[in-house]
Structure formats: C-alpha cells, structure tokens
C-alpha cells in the first residue's frame, strides 16, 4: 500500500516535471484540445437549443378546425367529444364566429370599421382551436378531425413541424461529424505531444528500462501527462464556453425576447462535465496511442 502510494507520487512528479519542461508543446496540445472541445461544446449547445426551440414551437402548434355553418348546440357538442377522443389532443376550445371577428377587428385596430365594411354580416365560421400534447401526432390528428362530419376544413402549421424535425436531424448529424473530426484532431495532437515528450526523455526511459522498471511504471507518467493536457484543454474550453454562452444568450434575450434559449444551469453543468470527461478521455487515448506504439519497453 505504501509502495503503491509512493509509486503514485512518483508518477505525478514525473508527469508534472515533463509538463514544465515542454512548455510550448504542451500549450499547443492543450490549446488544440481546448479549441476542439469548445467547438464540440458549441455543437452540443446548438443541438440542445434547436431541440428546445423546436419543442417549444411544436407545442405551440395548434389545429384550427373550421366548422360548417348552421350547426346547433348538439352538433357542436358531438364534434367536440369526437375531437377530444382523438389521440394526442390536449385541449379543445370553442371559438365562436363573433369571437373570431372581435379578434380580427382588434388586429386591424380600434378605429377600423371592419363590421361596417363587411356590411354588418360576419363571414367567419365557428371553429375549434385544438392544442396537442404530442406534437408528432399533429398531422394524423388533423387528418382524422378533418373527416368528422360538420368540420369544413382543418388548418395547422402544415410542413412547419416536419421541417423543424428535419432541421434538428441535420444539425445533429453535422455536429456529430464535426465533433468526430475535431476529436480525432485533438487525439492526434496529444499523441504527437506525448511522442515528442517520450523522444525528449528517451534517455530516462532507457535508463529506467536498464534498472528494471516495470512497463507500467514507465508508461504511467506519459498517460497521466496526456490526461492532464486533455483536462487543461477542457477547462479552458468550459470557461470560454460558459462565459460566451451566458453573455450571448443574455444579449439574445434582450434583442429577440420571443426566441426560446436554454438557460437551465443543470443542462450546462451536464455539458461541462461531459466536456471535461471528454477532454480527459481524448488525452488518455492520445497518450495511449503513442505509449503503445513508441514505448516498447
């Protein structure tokens, strides 16, 4: 136990000794990791936000079912029950033609003489406004409501929902590819850094070998060095990302108040934890590649 502790201490000392020695190289490797994790973070935030926005938009999607003229209370009640029975429907509200006209008049402005210009008649139909609990069912629900007797026609944001889904899928795909490429880049750079470190320390390595160090004893400081580089890069990325994201969303909400953005700290902390782990992982993979390939001890 004491021996393991001493070994661990030694491994840390060696890793930091070598980090101090190759300042610029380490800076480059940590910097690249930082940049790639930063972009990775942006990609994740982009996906999270489009998901969030599309969720918000989707849940605001309503179906308007315009009704035939001359229906009585019983007809209305029957239609309402049938609509409520449709899967995915959350809320149904009746909008009378008077209410619709009032809303329309309001939109034209108080001074406008909408009623008069229409010759005192109301051309608008009665309607039901339907909110959905499950946005993905909007299309099918709309179709089945349209078939109900007494419903003249149905309107909803045809296409908008589908487009939104397509957009998120694309963003997800593109950021996945970008993440992958950048991840490979930083693994490669860390691998190169560790390889150069090992080259700079080949003398020590061979001496260690001659006096009978075990393979893992020789390897550990390099693996640790890689992990530290990855973690350092991740910390920089998290800090920059954290500051710039909160600044950006703050500004965005001032300018575009209606645009929903994720400002949930738990989501961000999850992301930052993920980035940090990813940084250490990249460092470990990178140094492992070099240690495995160039350190035949």
């Amino acid at each position: 136990m004491l021996m393991q502790l001493r070994m661990a201490l030694y491994v840390f000392q060696e890793a930091f000794r070598s980090l101090r020695r190759n300042g610029w190289l380490n800076f480059a490797a940590a910097g690249t990791t930082a940049v790639s994790l930063f972009v990775l973070g942006i990609a994740v935030l982009l996906v999270v936000n489009t998901n969030y926005i599309s969720k918000t938009v989707e849940s605001n999607v309503e179906i308007m079912a315009y009704l035939d003229r001359g229906l009585d209370q019983n007809d209305l009640k029957a239609i309402r029950t049938q609509i409520e029975a449709t899967p995915g429907v959350k809320e149904v509200r009746f909008i009378s033609k008077e209410e619709a006209l009032a809303t329309l008049a309001k939109r034209f402005g108080k001074e406008s003489k909408l009623k008069e210009s229409l010759g005192g008649t109301n051309p608008l139909p009665d309607a039901f406004r339907i909110r959905m609990s499950e946005p993905r069912q909007v299309a099918s629900a709309a179709a089945s409501i349209n078939r109900l007797p007494g419903v003249e026609k149905v309107r909803y944001g045809q296409g908008v929902v589908e487009k939104m889904f397509k957009l998120t899928a694309w963003i997800r795909l593109i950021s996945m590819v970008v993440m992958g490429l950048l991840g490979v880049c930083s693994v490669f750079l860390i691998a190169t850094t560790i390889r150069l470190t090992m080259f700079a320390r080949r003398r020590e390595i061979s001496i260690m070998k001659w006096v009978g160090a075990t393979d893992w004893f020789v390897r550990w400081p390099f693996l640790l060095e890689g992990m530290i580089l990855g973690a350092a890069g991740a910390l920089v990325a998290v800090a920059v990302l954290g500051f710039s994201y909160s600044a950006l969303t703050g500004k965005l909400q001032e300018v575009l108040a209606f645009l929903p953005v994720v400002r949930d700290y738990r989501v961000l902390i999850h992301l930052f934890e993920g980035l940090f782990t990813a940084g250490i992982g990249l460092g470990l993979v990178g140094s492992f590649i070099s240690v495995h390939r160039y350190l035949r001890v």
Binding site: M3, R6, E204, I207, M208, A213, F217
Partner: peptide
C-alpha cells in the same frame, strides 16, 4: 549496466541520478 557514454541524466544531480534507479524499483525515501 555501465556504458561507454555514461548515460547520466544531465538535468539531475549526482545524488538524483543514483536515486533515480532506486525510485524506479519502488524504493522509499
């Protein structure tokens, strides 16, 4: 092992060079 070109670590003192061989096999301070 002893070599023609000594193979010492230039950035460590005499003491540290010798101690290094002991550290590597897990000797205590």
């Amino acid at each position: 092992m002893v070599f023609q070109d000594f193979r010492l670590l230039p950035d460590r003192t005499v003491f540290e060079n010798v101690a290094f061989a002991m550290q590597v096999v897990g000797a205590g301070p």
